[in-house]
Design a binder for these strands. Structure first.
Length: 264
DNA sequence: ATTGCTTCCTGAGCGC
DNA sequence: TGCGCTCAGGAAGCAA
């Protein structure tokens, strides 16, 4: 569910709400949600909140890193009433001033992991380049994809190549790039790589501007929806602006939407 | 090394 | 109304 723009919107919302707050405790309501990769204890105050791919990274004064992944249906909701609990509350991060962050997650795939600051975190090390950074350019794509025969759709979903894209944005990016999602990655031309890079940046920054996309579950820290769903061109659509029907197929077990006329 | 299949879990929406 | 089926934005783990 939450992809880069949604995760970034959540982080932006957290900045002026929880930075500098002292974490009293983390309550786990559902086993299998919170993992301590170090001795359980005081985390201290929140120093910074950042993002890598779809991971939220919270650093604290006690040399800890809290890694949060929302997976499909996870939400982080800031709540000033300590007693209030959401419908699928899996964990709570409680602050000294009696405010808290609710970790709500219907499908329970999301995780909160606590590490020491200098721990090696394999999940982060494996990630590919950040799509909005300068490292992500056509040369990088060309180098990474030259031997990849899998469909370009599958490759763009691979976090080891680009970190932060999910099913919705990949569909939109390939639509704007006018590329057939079934096309083998190594068959793209240099011009197409260049175009993909441009469209990745364009779609993600537009989505960020509109606080992400809400299809069903996604909410920001104030429990508000995003607005980018009104700008989607193919994902979940029946017809293309060109008049032809949008095709819906399965790729690697996930639904792919594309316009057979506009995307070649 | 790369690929694609399965799995984790709950809930919504559909047809009958 | 209710049952059973399919589907859902992610990614680790596994086998081929």
């Amino acid at each position: 569910m939450p992809e880069l723009p949604e995760v970034q919107t959540i982080i932006n919302g957290l900045q002026n709400k929880v930075v500098n707050k002292n974490i009293t405790k983390i309550i786990e309501h559902r086993p299998g949600t919170v993992f301590w990769n170090k001795k359980e204890g005081n985390l201290g105050e929140i120093v910074s909140i950042s993002r890598r791919g779809k991971y939220i990274i919270i650093q604290t004064t006690n040399k800890c890193k809290i890694l949060i992944h929302l997976r499909m249906t996870g939400k982080l909701i800031f709540e000033t009433n300590l007693k209030k609990v959401s419908s699928h509350c899996r964990a709570e991060i409680i602050f000294e001033d009696e405010t808290k962050l609710l970790f709500d997650d219907v499908r329970t795939f999301g995780k909160i992991e606590i590490f020491s600051l200098d721990d090696y975190i394999p999940a982060l090390e494996k990630l590919g380049s950040e799509p909005l950074s300068k490292d992500f350019n056509y040369k990088y794509l060309n180098k990474k994809l030259i031997k990849r025969k899998a469909p370009i759709k599958n490759i763009l979903l691979d976090q080891k190549i680009v970190a932060g894209l999910g099913n919705i944005y990949v569909a939109e990016i390939l639509y704007h790039s006018k590329i057939d999602p079934r096309k083998p990655a190594n068959k793209l031309t240099i011009d197409q790589f260049k175009n993909v890079v441009i469209q990745v940046r364009s779609v993600l920054s537009d989505a960020l501007k509109y606080n992400g996309t809400t299809i069903s579950d996604y909410r920001n820290v104030d429990d508000k929806t995003g607005e980018f769903q009104q700008f989607l061109k193919v994902y979940g659509k029946k017809t293309c602006e060109c008049g032809s029907m949008i095709n819906k197929i399965k790729q690697a077990g996930r639904s792919t939407y594309f316009c057979p006329e506009c995307q070649r």
